[in-house]
Amino acid sequence: MKRPSEDVKIFSGSSNPMLATEICRLLGTEVGAAELSRFSSGEIYVGIGESVRGADVYVLQSFSHPVNEHFVELMVMIDALKRSSAGMINVIIPYYGYARQEKQDRSREPITAKMVADVLTTVGADRVITMDLHAPAIQGFFDIPVDHMTALDLIADHLRNKDLTDHIVVSPDAGRAKTAERLATYLDLPVALMNKRRPKHNEAEITHVIGDVRGKIPIIIEDMIDTGGTIVKVAEGLVEHGALPHVILCATHAVFSDPALQRLQHPAIREVIVTDTLPVEAPVMQKLRVLSVAPLIAEAIDRIHHNRSISKLFSESNR
């Protein structure tokens, strides 16, 4: 990667400044100057500390806890950049919050993922760069370009360093089946599918397993780990069906809402592999492995700025 030209500016919200700093280090630049503060009433203030007139601007903000604070902060940052005459405002959202509200499961429910897309577009975003959406169809909620990247190759590369004899890739539900099949193809492993139902939010009941997991070590692939309740039920269900109690759990987004860290200490879970799309304070668990998406995002910024395809970043994904 080349050092970005002077007309490229990279700014960071307060959700994941360490990731933004690492991206800038890889690009040979510095995080743009911005003042982020709160009024006594709790209102958010953003001041851009350098000229962005005509610049190709990238602003990074994940929807980490507190989600609503970081969402509003991003809106204010975009507005500040727009009013500062930025040439192009590219919003990098490694973890797109509200993605689980992408459809109506019952009458009179919101489709909040669409509402967030509308707000981002209306306030002035020209492009969105995100990773492993809960539902890929969310890309269609936007009327602006969306670059939907994946951490699957990073996870696959990490797993290749292990002896994968007698391992099996497991999709925890039908929604992850395609991702599980891709990972199984990358690793040349068999695949199994769990069937579950949700009596209410953040709860799941496993009904049955499709595939033979007896005597095998499961590799569960998810897009996120929130409270950890579902994933523990999946691990226990696999063991009940004959899998070895050495589960490897893989997920892009480490939401880790309480009591996730406590639940992930379950003895059947041997390793938890996540990325830094959300800030993870280390060391939080001995079994936790955090992979950085900074090189991936830095390369994407370089390619987008120079009008080159970012699909080349995912050589395996495009096979």
Rank of each mutant, 00 (worst) to 15 (best):
E109Q: 09
E181H: 13
L60W: 01
F11K: 12
K178H: 09
L288V: 10
I23S: 02
G13V: 02
M1A: 13
D118C: 01
L193D: 00
L36H: 15
A204I: 09
S51N: 14
D105S: 10
I129S: 00
G28W: 15
L60E: 01
D7C: 00
E281Y: 06
T227G: 12
D223Y: 08
I221Y: 03
S14E: 13
G140H: 13
A99Y: 04
D7M: 00
A177M: 15
H253I: 02
A80H: 11
T150W: 10
P267D: 09
L133I: 03
T230S: 13
R53W: 08
L278P: 07
K162S: 07
A282K: 14
E222H: 02
M194S: 01
P66H: 04
M224S: 06
D118A: 03
N202K: 11
H208T: 08
A204W: 06
D188W: 00
I297D: 01
L288W: 12
L264P: 09
V293F: 01
P199V: 04
L249H: 07
A204D: 06
H158F: 13
A282I: 13
L133S: 01
I221N: 02
G13H: 07
D105T: 09
E69Q: 13
F314C: 06
L296M: 15
L187G: 10
M115T: 05
S40P: 14
D153M: 14
R198V: 02
